[in-house]
């Protein structure tokens, strides 16, 4: 019995150590980068262009925003529509299985393959060249599974009684979806969107091969633009200014942390509204 107890204690220690290892790995990375980067971040760095002596990241921030908005404008309606179809219209069967398999596959394809595909299809075949549009189209396929899955989960969580009540009152199915189900699923859909934003902001390989790396302000969707993540890659690769690289990495980490925070907030809200029902 005593032997057992020491064995249990040893295993508990191992478990604590592993958790500690995970957290300390993260802390090491975050603290190292933020400590080195924070001192280089100032308004001039954030708000000036990248030209001549100026090494600001404003063009990259804007390009990142454009790509995020454009990708979401394409993939959010399609993804939400797909989730509605999957939850409200399909019965379990072949079609559902195929669509589900396709979504899983999309989720599993690595970003470099998306980049490769975007490079042949959007850049070369459709002649969009290196442009924000090519990048956004590629990314919108990439985040499609995230949006479909998350929205699907929230739609499933809407109580059946809502649907029954609405239908019993004579509303059509579309009316029910539009007026009853979607409004109560909005927080979940928001989560899906925020998740995709995080994914797009952090993406490098797929953007690098489709949106190019021009550091000028983009004025149309056919312009090439460099996102923050690509900028960090170029800085790291060129190895000329680690100060700027650290600062850019810090901006990226802070953005991701904010996105995570926002998500925890919306998820909390969903739980609250669900509970209050």
């Amino acid at each position: 019995m005593k032997k057992l107890r020491t064995k249990d204690a040893a295993i508990t220690v191992v478990i604590w150590l592993c958790a500690l290892l995970t957290v300390s790995g993260l802390l090491w990375l975050v603290i190292y980068i933020v400590a080195n980067g924070l001192s280089h971040i100032n308004l001039e760095f954030l708000l000036s262009e990248y030209k001549g002596d100026k090494h600001g990241i404003l063009p990259m921030i804007l390009s990142t925003c454009y790509i995020v908005l454009l990708s979401l404008a394409i993939s959010a309606p399609i993804g939400i529509g797909a989730a509605i179809y999957l939850v409200e219209f399909t019965k379990p069967g072949r079609l559902l299985q195929i669509i589900r398999f396709a979504t899983e596959t999309l989720a599993g394809i690595p970003s470099i393959i998306y980049g490769l595909f975007g490079f042949i299809f959007f850049v070369n075949v459709l002649k969009f060249n290196f442009s924000l549009l090519s990048g956004a189209l590629t990314l919108s396929i990439m985040v499609l599974p995230v949006i479909i899955r998350t929205t699907e989960e929230t739609l499933k969580a809407v109580p059946l009684s809502y649907r029954e009540g609405s239908l019993a009152l004579g509303a059509t199915k579309i009316q029910t979806i539009w007026k009853i189900i979607l409004p109560s699923a909005i927080p979940g859909i928001l989560t899906a969107v925020i998740l995709s934003v995080g994914r797009i902001v952090g993406e490098t390989a797929a953007v690098y091969l489709t949106a190019g790396m021009v550091t000028r302000f983009a004025t149309s969707v056919m312009d090439s633009g460099r996102t923050l993540a690509v900028h960090l890659y170029m800085l790291a690769k060129e190895g000329l200014s680690f100060e700027q690289a650290f600062a850019t990495a810090t901006v990226l980490i802070v953005t991701v942390a904010l996105i995570n925070l926002l998500m925890t907030k919306t998820v909390g809200k969903i739980k609250k509204t669900m509970n209050s029902r």
């Binding site: 802390l27 960090l232 942390a257 925890t264």
Partner: peptide
């Protein structure tokens, strides 16, 4: 912390 670990862009890991 684990969620943040998941969200950090891969290029940041590479740079680090």
């Amino acid at each position: 912390a684990v969620e943040l670990l998941a969200g950090i862009p891969s290029v940041v890991y590479g740079f680090f």
